[in-house]
């Protein structure tokens, strides 16, 4: 049975497919991770990833050879949001107050900072419930380790926006996950 890429390749070309694989196979997990966090369900993430790989193959000739992970994830990100946007109340256009109310003053000022949660379910839900525009930045930075500049490229956002969203996202996560020892003890 021919697999997806072999079947859908515009001009079935073994060499091209091999080159494509060599470029992007190493980044399949990164692609899936992003799609899955954005879509928040296996089924939607799967559709998004399949569609993304097809698009990537279609546009492969326009790939300049630099940083395939960034190139692929930009496609995955846009494809996933496009799919998600068809569902009500979701997606990257979720409303977000862009004002930056930070933060240095806001937090507690204990000597030590403690994580309250290391339980995976709690961590997962904290990230899952972030508004989509913040969630994607956290996934790209904390889970995939992209630089600010790379995140800006993937998301087509200004680097300043990336930085402020990341700070807001972390502030929200910290509010849920991080306490001073005083707060933790009963």
């Amino acid at each position: 049975m021919p697999a997806l890429l072999a079947a859908m390749s515009p001009a079935p070309d073994r060499h091209r497919t091999a080159r494509f694989e060599a470029c992007f196979l190493p980044h399949l997990d990164a692609a899936w991770n992003l799609a899955r966090w954005l879509a928040r369900s296996d089924a939607d993430a799967e559709d998004a990833l399949q569609e993304s790989m097809l698009r990537a193959l279609r546009y492969f000739d326009s790939f300049n050879g630099e940083n395939p992970r960034v190139w692929l994830l930009a496609i995955v990100r846009n494809t996933t949001w496009t799919l998600i946007a068809k569902k009500p109340g979701q997606g990257v256009h979720e409303s977000l107050d862009e004002d930056l109310h930070l933060l240095v003053d806001g937090g507690p000022t204990p000597e030590a900072i403690a994580l309250v949660a290391s339980d995976i379910a709690v961590l997962q839900s904290a990230l899952d419930t972030l508004p989509a525009p913040l969630r994607e930045i956290v996934v790209l930075r904390e889970l995939e380790g992209f630089s600010y500049k790379e995140i800006a490229t993937i998301t087509s956002l200004k680097i300043g926006t990336v930085m402020s969203r990341l700070a807001r996202a972390r502030e929200r996560l910290a509010a849920e996950l991080v306490r001073s020892p005083l707060e933790v003890s009963p």
Binding site: L115, A117, L123
Partner: peptide, 8 residues
């Protein structure tokens, strides 16, 4: 600490 949590 937040980054530590997200590195799970």
């Amino acid at each position: 600490a937040t980054r530590g949590a997200m590195s799970h």
